[in-house]
């Protein structure tokens, strides 16, 4: 091995590097390596870090974010974008707690919240496909509307949400694994199957890769994109349910601050904002990396303000690397 490298001219070695760099899976592989390095560094710095308990904690804590990022990935691949997803999570907690307060069974509230979310997804989808509005603007507007409604409904207050069976969804464990983490992983695997093994997945990549060509081939573009908006919105509702169950409380703005983490994870995971390219596994790794970063820095007693800075730096680094990689792949 060593010999074969020596016999290469410098330019040959460089080309080899570039071609390695340019492999389709290299983005996810790079993230994996980065994840391992991160774990190694924190393990050295903190004795509490590399314990099964802590690792499972990270998994449980990022689950509701990962869920939204998972559903957002195919949407962005198809050329869409959903900024309203975290606001939907906030509204969900509010709806559940209000209905419960009115005497409805808690699961009726969950079900209704999911239905409401699906309706919001349909509206997002219709506005962006039928009216051809920019998804950034549509879902930004939707985000504002939904978080506004959540604030109106609660008067801005956080409502308690202590129902034993319900809270178990947020804090329970099955053979030691946090339930939110299980829900997230099931979502990732399910989306992976849909995106790579099913017809709908072909349409997702085609729609984002070249919408006009897809339309001319007769692919049901609108249906595909609207469905993805609905999936994204429902992921927001489930994330809101998990968060409410975890916290034992429903705050109208509980999840809002995580919107940026969701989008950051998708981009960090190698999904192109221009559509057509990406995978859920990249997103999963990115979610774990961001969660690990938060966890590790907290264990090291770094102020949470610095954690925002770190997250931004990691995101920009990763996106720059990806850009270099894309260029290596060749236009």
């Amino acid at each position: 091995m060593a010999q074969s490298i020596e016999t290469h001219t410098p330019s040959g070695a460089r080309e080899q590097m570039l071609s390695l760099f340019g492999k389709p899976w290299s983005g996810v592989a790079m993230l994996g390596i980065f994840y391992l390095i991160l774990i190694a560094v924190f393990s050295v710095l903190s004795p509490y870090f590399l314990t099964l308990r802590n690792m499972l904690n990270i998994g449980g804590n990022v689950a509701y974010i990962g869920l939204m990022a998972a559903a957002g990935t195919p949407l962005i691949i198809a050329g869409g974008l959903d900024l309203s997803v975290a606001a939907i999570a906030g509204l969900t907690g509010v709806v559940i707690s209000m209905l419960y307060g009115m005497g409805f069974p808690i699961w009726i509230g969950v079900l209704l919240a999911i239905v409401v979310a699906a309706a919001i997804g349909v509206v997002n989808g219709l506005f962006t496909t039928r009216l051809r509005l920019n998804p950034l603007i549509v879902t930004l507007g939707m985000m504002s509307i939904i978080s506004g409604i959540a604030l109106v409904l609660t008067g801005g207050l956080t409502r308690p949400l202590m129902v034993p069976g319900f809270n178990w969804v947020g804090s329970g464990r099955v053979i030691g694994i946090p339930i939110p983490f299980i829900i997230m992983m099931v979502t990732f695997v399910g989306l992976w199957i849909v995106m790579t093994k099913m017809r709908f997945g072909r349409y997702i990549y085609a729609a984002g890769g070249n919408a006009e060509a897809s339309r001319l081939i007769g692919i049901p573009l609108e249906k595909t994109v609207i469905t993805l908006y609905v999936i994204s919105a429902i992921s927001g509702a489930i994330a809101g349910t998990i968060l409410g169950a975890m916290l034992g409380a429903a705050g109208p703005t509980a999840a809002g601050s995580q919107l940026l983490t969701v989008i950051a994870a998708i981009i960090l995971g190698g999904t192109s904002l221009n559509g057509g390219r990406g995978s859920v596994w990249g997103t999963l790794l990115a979610v774990l990396i961001l969660g690990t970063l938060n966890n590790g820095l907290t264990l090291l007693n770094v102020s949470s303000f610095w954690q925002d800075v770190t997250r931004g730096v990691v995101l920009m680094l990763a996106v720059s690397l990806d850009q270099i990689r894309t260029r290596a792949l060749g236009e």
Binding site: Y205, N210, A213, L216
Partner: peptide
């Protein structure tokens, strides 16, 4: 602009209309 879907493979491009 209207024909190929650049990031997909030859197989996917051929199969796309009648998946």
């Amino acid at each position: 602009k209207e024909g190929i879907i650049a990031d997909l493979t030859v197989r996917e491009n051929i199969a796309l209309p009648f998946e």
